[in-house]
Write a protein that binds this DNA or RNA. Sequence first.
RNA 1: GGUCCUAUCGUCUAAUGGUUAGGACACCACCCUUUCACGGUGGUAAUACGGGUUCGACUCCCGUUAGGACCGCCA
Length: 505
Amino acid sequence: MNSDLSQTQSKKVRTRFAPSPTGFLHIGSVRTCLFNFLYAKKMGGDFVLRIEDTDKERSKPEFEEDIKQGLKWLGIIWDEGPDTNGKFGPYRQMDRLDIYEKYARQLLDQSHAYYCFCSEEELEAKKQEMVARGHAPIYDGKCSNISKEEAQQRIAAGEKAVIRFKTQNKVISFTDLIWGKVDFDASLFGDFVIAKDTRSPLYNFAAAVDDYLMEITHIVRGEEHLSNTPRQMMIQSALGFGHPQYAHLPLILGPDKTKLSKRHNAEPVGYYKQKGYLPQALNNFIAFLGWNPGTEREMFSMPELINEFSFERCRKSGSIFNIAKLDWYNGMYIRQTPLDKLTELLIPYYQEKNLIEKISDREFKITATNQTIDFATLSLIVSLYQERLVKLEDIIEATDLFFVELPSYEKDLLLFKDMTYQQVANSIDKCIELLSNAESFQKDYLQTHCLNAIQEANLNRGQILWPLRVALTGKKASAGPFEIAEILGKDLSLKRLNFAKKILG
RNA sequence: GGUCCUAUCGUCUAAUGGUUAGGACACCACCCUUUCACGGUGGUAAUACGGGUUCGACUCCCGUUAGGACCGCCA
């Protein structure tokens, strides 16, 4: 029952990501998908997106759309999928019902499967009883003795039935690329349900059929699927299919070390996008959960991940999703982003908060003041804060001061260390004098001009610069006062200094 | 309860019989500095426990403990 290595190795590698569109794209799915993608590309093969929408109640088109959008945003591009031409389509399982029907009938005809007429209540009662007696809760095979003819008649008479696979009592072995040799005692599975009817396939059956027909060579999925593998292999064998290679990835865990899920506030990928995480950061971070390149290098672009990836360097134990590390990666990638590109990424955040409105490609209107601001000035502002951003959305809180007439802040914020109000008022006066006399508002000039004056007057730098910076920004933390003054301009800077005096009373 | 798996700093991990157990995030200190951030320097911090095997064990074996996954007419 070993996977036929000789055959798969000579074939072109094909992997697949097969999500069910029953929810938004989540981090755990992204990791599975990413590793499928990385391996396929590493091997020069194809990566297939297959939509497993056989759960009619829960599958929704908007979820499929969210999954596709998320993957595109991450740069995980499929070679074949629902909306691409591929010779192995259709790629949505609900469009493949004829295929499943054909194989379901084959299984039924060849007695690898049979109709089961047991009611759910009956099954549940039996299950309870078995568990109570300390047994694995498996189906007792009651309906396996019903003749095909009788089954047909009862179906024709409208009796409700599901299709069960006839499990053989034997050990199923396979060599997992991550787990090594794995053995399962199939007798512990019982006869499991593979379809609700010939046109309503269930996961294990549909996946086994599709993976074969789509010529998938390597199935890369989460560890939670490990025990599905022998079931799918039995179906493959019964249908005369060969077996693909398997690689079961360790799980991504929440802070409580259980499988990452909704109850951990595990947000969908769209959430990270909205917060301003960059796809490079997310990919890099997720790739390093359960895999490492074996070197001390931490930053890897997608092409570099593809180049370095291997199952040999995947570990078997789960890893906790640690957002602090993601934040670090994101800051690193934000700092690496070219300024123009970063500005473009940030503009939607300003628009979203209604701080600016677009006039043309290179010109915007500041909502609060009606003044125009061009792309170059926006870039200048961004340049001041690029190294301070953890996430793109942080730009708003950091730079809203440039998009209002006057900042608002508490009077005491003007106090540097143990200064008195009188001292601060004196400092503000000095700043007004300095900026009024400035021949230029270029930041280098301003800096030299002010710092020299402070030194000549034998003043304390902090006692001048802190109140100046706070008067200009209204914030506890910000970029330096001179670079901010340059952008604000003389009028607005002086206006804010005078406003500070008014606050002081 | 059954089957399977896992166990190195708080977290992500390296070290596949011989290292002062390495790196990264986080944290702390110092430097830079008006603030924040960036950057730089340094620091705290781990082989779950108990037995073996071996000259030598994070590494191999056994047990204990702790954790996890699965056990659907979901995928």
